[in-house]
């Protein structure tokens, strides 16, 4: 009966993010936030394991006022317990410090078998949290899992890595990062939403977990939309006799761009 901790983050809803066309900067103010797509799947996977094998699921989040929304959603999905590290200073901290904060909370928990988190958040997308957390906790990590099982004392994950699909095993406790392919997260019913409002997550401050002096190592100087310029190359295949030559040129150009092998 595994006890699972899931790290969940409220991310900018990328689908609704708009950019200022003159500065190419994202307009973050007023853009809705929601639980990151991979994080939502991590919660779902933890709940599915619990439904198969028993145990418990704890959700953990850090952040400003939005942390409560994350917890409300996690409770509505069905997690047993929630911890949130809150404080206005948290929204300015970089990923490195956030990993340390998550690890500090986990070290306070009596026991856990698995830590699940999204392989990357939907907005910052650093891909660092899982591996960083495993390092600080001194446990193995498997990244980018698209299938997950528990066999005895081991966790078995199927992962798409580089040029192939790998099946990897690790002894528990372990950290596993989750990709979009693993599942389709449940949409909480009205009954679950109303039930969740009666549950309250435990709130921790940086001081309470001994990290009052936490400082970011990096600073975001600028965020801008990548500029993709179209090359506007036309291969003329409008007449039958030109078609073969145009096709060869198109294939050659695609190979040059690395789109085809």
């Amino acid at each position: 009966m595994p006890d699972i901790v899931v790290c969940v983050k409220q991310s900018i809803d990328i689908e609704q993010l708009k950019f200022d066309p003159s500065t190419r900067s994202p307009i973050l103010a007023g853009t809705p936030k929601k639980v990151g797509q991979m994080d939502g799947r991590a919660v779902e996977e933890a709940l599915r394991i619990k439904e198969r094998m028993g145990g418990s699921v704890i959700a953990l989040t850090i952040g400003g006022s939005e942390a409560e929304d994350v917890m409300r959603r996690a409770y509505a999905m069905g997690v047993d317990e929630g911890y949130m590290v809150t404080g206005p200073e948290l929204s300015d901290l970089d990923t490195n410090v956030k990993i340390k904060v998550l690890a500090a909370v986990m070290k306070k928990l009596p026991y856990f078998d698995l830590v699940l988190c999204g392989a990357a958040s939907s907005d910052v997308s650093s891909w660092q949290v899982g591996p960083g957390l495993a390092e600080l906790l001194g446990v193995p990590v498997i990244t980018s899992a698209k299938k997950l099982d528990i066999e005895g004392e081991e966790v078995v994950a199927e992962c798409d890595l580089e040029k192939g699909t790998y099946t990897l095993k690790a002894e528990m406790p372990a950290v596993i990062t989750i990709t979009l392919e693993i599942n389709e997260p449940r949409i909480p019913s009205l009954m679950a939403v109303l039930g969740a409002s009666r549950k309250k997550a435990k709130t921790l401050t940086l001081e309470e977990i001994g990290m009052a002096e936490a400082k970011s190592l990096t600073k975001v100087c600028d965020i801008s939309m990548p500029e993709v310029k179209r090359k506007k190359v036309i291969f003329d295949g409008s007449e039958a006799e030109k078609l073969e030559e145009a096709t060869s040129k198109l294939i050659e150009a695609l190979r040059r761009e690395g789109v085809m092998e």
């Binding site: 409560e68 929304d69 409300r72 509505a76 909480p188 939403v193 969740a196 409002s197």
Partner: peptide, 18 residues
Amino acid sequence: TKDEELFRDTVKEFCQKN
């Protein structure tokens, strides 16, 4: 309320999917 906002999100997701 927070419940109403979360419910709207979940209904939107359900409706957009189904």
